[in-house]
């Protein structure tokens, strides 16, 4: 069955795609949610060690990175807006900006990882003599930020694909829907980070 023939019109099709995307986002929330719950439980068990370990993270660098990612959410929103308004050039520009900011986020994250590696906070090269459950904290830190970074990377791939197809062809309703849905995904990934940042970096610094 050709896909075009399934829905009555483009609007129905777009609504179905949006519903599919929201459903998918629900699975993402559960995916991260399970990890958040696991983290919260362990934080409760080893609060002191976790707080002390958290103070070893580069919270200022990560704070700047938060700003980078939030800006990318704005450019993404503008990209969706441009697509809906049919402005191809501004869509291309905003998509490029979003990709740039996303890549910058990953770059800063890599710098953070390297700093942690040098400070002996890396799995397999963990030399810090902190309280024992501190390693558990760092393992959560790598699992959570790693999974998040994987999601950012997937988002970048989707953005690159959108950019290429927008570059090659005119905007049709299908690609507008694709931009919208990628936007939803990108905002979710940002939102996950908005939870991660205070949970990992700031908790140890609360008075």
């Amino acid at each position: 069955m050709p896909e075009e023939a399934i829905f009555e019109d483009a609007l129905e099709r777009r609504q179905a795609a949006a519903l599919g995307m929201w459903t998918f986002l629900a699975t993402e929330v559960l995916l991260f949610g399970a990890l958040f719950v696991a983290y919260a439980l362990n934080y409760h068990l080893h609060a002191d060690a976790f707080r002390e370990a958290a103070r070893r993270l580069e919270h200022l660098l990560a704070g700047a990175n938060t700003a980078v990612l939030l800006s990318s959410s704005w450019t993404m929103a503008m990209a969706v807006h441009s697509a809906a308004a049919g402005r191809r050039r501004s869509l291309l520009a905003y998509l490029a900006a979003t990709m740039l900011l996303g890549a910058a986020f990953l770059g800063v994250k890599a710098i953070e990882y390297r700093t942690e590696y040098e400070h002996g906070l890396f799995p397999g090269r963990f030399t810090w003599q902190g309280p024992a459950p501190a390693r558990l904290f760092f393992n959560f830190y790598y699992a959570l930020t790693g999974l998040h970074a994987a999601h950012v990377s997937a988002g970048l791939a989707a953005l690159a694909w959108l950019w290429l197809s927008a570059f090659r062809a005119r905007l049709d309703p299908r690609s507008v829907a694709a931009v919208e849905n990628t936007g939803l995904y990108w905002h979710l990934v940002d939102m996950v980070w908005i939870f991660l940042y205070p949970m990992l970096y700031l908790m140890g610094r609360a008075p």
């Binding site: 080893h46 002191d48 060690a49 902190g130 309280p131 024992a132 459950p133």
Partner: peptide
């Protein structure tokens, strides 16, 4: 015994 820093008793250094 295993991880003394786990819950530090008030008034003592780790």
């Amino acid at each position: 015994i295993l991880t003394p820093g786990w819950k530090l008793v008030a008034g003592f250094a780790p």
